[in-house]
Amino acid sequence: MRRLVAALPLMWLGLFFLVPFLVLLRISVSEPAIAQPPYLPLFEWADGLLTMTLNLGNYIFLAEDPLYLFSYLSSLKIAAVSTLIALLLGYPMAYAIARAPTGRRNLLLMLVILPFWTSFLLRVYAWIGLLKANGLVNNVLLWLGVIDQPLVILQTDFAVYLGIVYTYLPFMILPLYATLSKMDGDLLEAAADLGARPAVTFLTVTLPLSMPGVLAGSMLVFIPAVGEYVIPALLGGPGTLMIGSVLWNEFFLNRDWPVAAAVAIVMVLVLALPITLLRRIQAQEES
């Protein structure tokens, strides 16, 4: 029974990660064709011989055109900056919730989760209404006399950062809250008794103890942000370069499923390598 329980997460991973990954890998070494599905089969029976055609050209192609490298780098940058902003915003919020009286704490947590009650897509669309030239933000600023020309906010990189930080902020706050609320308040008192100022206490006691929450929250924001497609498509400008839109172009405009699959495989590797490294460093520190 216990073994079965332990095997469940593995089965889950195998079914919903490994199998799709292998399907993708198989398409990525195929060749495009005008057919249904639009790529050539990997194995072929001819004259009683089973032949397998592996086409690594798709990966070589990705290396040859700098567009792909720049898109990966740009996605990583946008995700990293968004994660940092979400951390800077989310940490004080999580801290305040963790330190709030028990009764109010549940209400505050509820407020963090509340946006999930409406669809993610609708919330991103709502930002279009707020940010556009004729939108609420510009109209209020014009009315206050702060500006005399509407600001161009929509279709800029700024709007993309705003959208990503807004959407993923709860994923930062919740794990941070979980670690901060478990922290022993006596530790802070002890630090104060021994003469540490609040800033020193925070840097030497609170922050190190909340590192697991910082890492978990950052992962939860960073990983989906790298592959984000919807937010840059709706809020970003034409110059916003992210791997999600490059993938869309390969798949839909070029109808080149093999190259699209190769782009996706490389993205998984780009994400998996630093995370595995990070885990290893973490494990070493713990031991």
């Binding site: 495009p32 055109d65 567009l67 110059g239 370069l241 172009n249 405009l253 070029n254």
Partner: peptide, 19 residues
């Protein structure tokens, strides 16, 4: 043709992003 679609999409991306 598939070849022209690729050239066209690439030109379009470079038009939009400057790359």
């Amino acid at each position: 043709s598939a070849r022209y679609d690729r050239a066209l999409t690439r030109a379009w991306t470079s038009l939009k992003t400057g790359l």
